[in-house]
Nucleic acid binder design. Structure first.
Lengths: 333, 333
DNA sequence: CTATTCTACTAATACGATTTACTAATTGCT
DNA sequence: AGCAATTAGTAAATCGTATTAGTAGAATAG
C-alpha cells in the first residue's frame, strides 16, 4: 500500500480511501483512477489479515459438523451455506469433527482464536445437539439440529409437514390403507413424519390403524422386512410411505419378488430424494426432498442478520426455523 | 496479552515467550506456570489475525473445487484433506465454484488476499483442468485432476491399475469372455480402465475382442443397454466389468429381467464403491473403490512438504501421484 | 579479583492495514 | 473584501502479536 501511495504520488491514507470507496473522503475521480491504475500496475493485493486485525472483522464463518462434508446425505447443506456466504463476501472455514467431543471443543476454540464472525453448527441428520458452551461467545446458528432448551437459533426440516404432504399425496390417489415403514430410533424425523401421517389420515377421515405402521432398520433390508410384514396383514395396504429412500429400495425388492406391481398394486413414496437411488429405481421413486440447500442458505442469512442488526434479536427468543420438504413426483404413486 | 502480562507481573514479551514455548528464552518453570495460570484465569485467547499478520503464516489452506462438497461422489476428498490438515494444525477455507470460470478466478483472488499458505484445487472426477494462473503464486496441488503440461503437482486415481485389478479378479475366477461397459466420454477414467482391462487380458493370454466392449451413458439405463447389447452377441460374456456402479445397477436390472443369475450366470464388477448402491444391490456388488480419502490426505501432506522444504522440489518436476483403487469384494463375482 | 557467560527478563519495532484528527487551499456567500 | 464552508488531502495512532536487541544481576572461569 505504501508503494502504491508513493507511485501514485499520494499518501497511504488516500490509497486506503479509494480502495474502500470511502464516501465522504472527497477524493476526486481523477485521483481515484490514478490510484486504481497504480494498484493494477503493481498488482497490489490488500492483506486481509492486516485489514481484519484493524477492523476486527474476518468475513469468515466457522462451519462445524459431525460428518456432513463426508456423506452423500447432506453435502447440499454446505453448498447452500457456501453459496449464501460467497454472495455476501464471506468464506467458510470448515471442520468436520467426526462426532468426537474433544475435537468439537478444539474446533470451537480454534475458530474463536481465528475470530470468525459467526459459527454454523451442523449435523448430518436432524437431531438434538450439545455444542460446547463457547459457541455462545459469537453469533451461532444450528443447522439441521437444535438444542433442547431452544436457546440457540436453529433451522431444521419440517418433518411433520413432510409426513403430512407425503401421506396426502397417497390419499389423493384414493388410497385408504396406507402402510408406514418407520425408523427404529425415535429421532425427530421418525416422530415428526408419523405425526404428519396421522394428521393427513385424520383430515381424510380415516382412522389410524396401528397395525399399518412398522418400525425397521433404516436400510434396504429394513424396507424389505417392513413390506413383508405389512403384506402379511389380513387387509394389506395399497400404498406405502417409507421413512427413507433406502428402505423404499428394499420395499421395491420385496414387491418385485412377489409380483406386486408399482404403482398399480402398491403405491410407494419415500423420503430424502437420494439422487443416486430415487430416480433410478424401477419405476422412478416419488419421494420427499430434504431442504438441505435451503437450510444452509437460511442459516447463513440468519447469521448475517444477527451480526448486522443484533438489536432485532432483543427480547425475542432465538428463531427456530422450519423448512418445508418438497414433494418430488416421479412414477411410483 | 497486555492484561495477562500485567496480572502476572511480567512483560508482554514474556507472555508471548511462554505462550509459544520459546526454547532459548530462559523462562523458569515457576514463571511459566504463573503466566499460564493468569491466561487460564482471564480466559485469554490469542488473536490469530495478529499472529498471522506478524508471522506471515495463516495456517490455512484454500480448498477450491467445482462441486466436490456437493456431490455424493467425492465428499471423502474433503474429509481426507481436512483430517490431514487438522492434524497439522491447519484449517481449510473451502469454496465451491460450481464450475464457473469467473468464480474460480475470484476464489483464487480472495484466497490470496487472505494469504492462505497453499491451495488445493479439486474436481469431482478425474480430469484435466486449467486453473487461474495466480494459483502459482503459492504452493498448489491438484486433487483428482491435473494440468496438461504437468507443471503443477497432482494426485489422481490410478485408473489403469484399477481396470487391471478389476479384470484380474474376474480372470482369476476362470472367466474368459469378459464384457466391458465403458463410458462414452474419453475421460482419463474411461481410457485408463480400458487400458488396464486389456493389460489383464494380455497377461492371461486372452485376445482382446472389440465386440465385448460397448460405450454407454454412465447411468443405470446405460448399463442396462450395455448388457443387453453384449448378451445379444453370438458368444455372450460370462463376466462383466462396468465403468461404474450406477451402470452396474442397470446391468443388474437387465440380468434380473432376463433370468440371468449373478454371479452364477454372469459375474459383475463395478467401479466407485458407491456406498448407497453397491452394498445394497442383490447380490451385493464387488467393485473398485476410488481412493478419495487417501488423495485428499496426500494432497495436504504434499502441500505441507512444499511449504516446509521447498528446496526438495528444486530440479525435480512436480510430482504426479497415482493412488491405487482397492478392490472391494462382495458377492457379485 | 576481574572478565566472561548465563539467566531472566524487558523495550521497542514491525507486520499492513483502518480511522481519527488535522491542515492548506479553494469556493461560496453577504 | 472578509469569513465560513468545502475540497483534497495527510500525519499519526491503533489493532494484537512476534521478534530482535538489549540489560541488570548472578554465576562461573581463569
Amino acid at each position: 500500500m505504501k508503494d502504491v501511495a508513493k507511485q501514485a504520488g499520494v499518501s497511504q491514507t488516500t490509497v486506503s480511501f479509494v480502495l474502500n470507496h470511502v464516501e465522504n473522503a472527497n477524493i476526486p475521480a481523477e485521483t481515484q483512477s490514478r490510484v486504481w491504475a497504480v494498484i493494477e500496475e503493481l498488482g497490489y493485493r490488500p492483506n486481509a489479515m492486516a485489514r481484519n486485525l484493524r477492523s476486527n472483522r474476518t468475513h469468515t464463518f466457522g462451519f462445524i459438523s459431525d460428518v456432513v462434508a463426508t456423506t452423500p446425505f447432506a453435502g447440499q447443506i454446505i453448498q447452500g451455506a457456501q453459496d449464501a456466504a460467497w454472495q455476501q463476501n464471506y468464506l467458510l472455514l470448515v471442520v468436520n469433527t467426526g462426532g468426537d467431543q474433544a475435537v468439537k471443543q478444539a474446533a470451537v476454540d480454534t475458530l474463536l482464536e481465528r475470530r470468525v464472525d459467526g459459527i454454523l453448527y451442523a449435523t448430518m441428520y436432524h437431531r438434538a445437539v450439545f455444542p460446547p458452551p463457547q459457541v455462545r461467545e459469537v453469533p451461532t446458528v444450528l443447522l439441521d439440529c437444535y438444542v433442547e432448551d431452544r436457546s440457540l437459533p436453529s433451522v431444521v426440516p419440517d418433518e411433520v409437514n413432510g409426513g403430512y404432504v407425503a401421506t396426502i399425496a397417497l390419499l389423493q390417489k384414493g388410497h385408504k390403507r396406507i402402510g408406514l415403514i418407520n425408523n427404529l430410533q425415535p429421532v425427530p424425523a421418525m416422530v415428526g413424519r408419523q405425526t404428519g401421517y396421522r394428521q393427513a389420515l385424520a383430515e381424510f377421515g380415516i382412522a389410524f390403524d396401528e397395525t399399518l405402521v412398522t418400525k425397521q432398520s433404516s436400510d434396504p433390508p429394513g424396507g424389505y422386512a417392513g413390506l413383508q410384514k405389512l403384506m402379511a396383514l389380513p387387509t394389506p395396504p395399497t400404498a406405502l410411505f417409507c421413512f427413507n429412500d433406502r428402505m423404499a429400495m428394499g420395499a421395491y425388492r420385496y414387491a418385485h419378488e412377489n409380483n406386486l406391481r408399482i404403482p398399480t398394486d402398491l403405491a410407494v413414496v419415500g423420503f430424502d430424494n437420494q439422487e443416486l437411488i430415487a430416480p433410478y429405481l424401477e419405476p422412478p421413486l416419488t419421494t420427499m426432498a430434504l431442504p438441505h440447500y435451503a437450510m444452509g442458505q437460511w442459516a447463513v442469512q440468519h447469521l448475517l442478520a444477527l451480526i448486522e442488526k443484533p438489536e432485532d434479536q432483543n427480547g425475542h427468543s432465538p428463531v427456530q426455523q422450519l423448512c418445508v420438504c418438497p414433494l418430488i413426483e416421479r412414477s411410483s404413486i
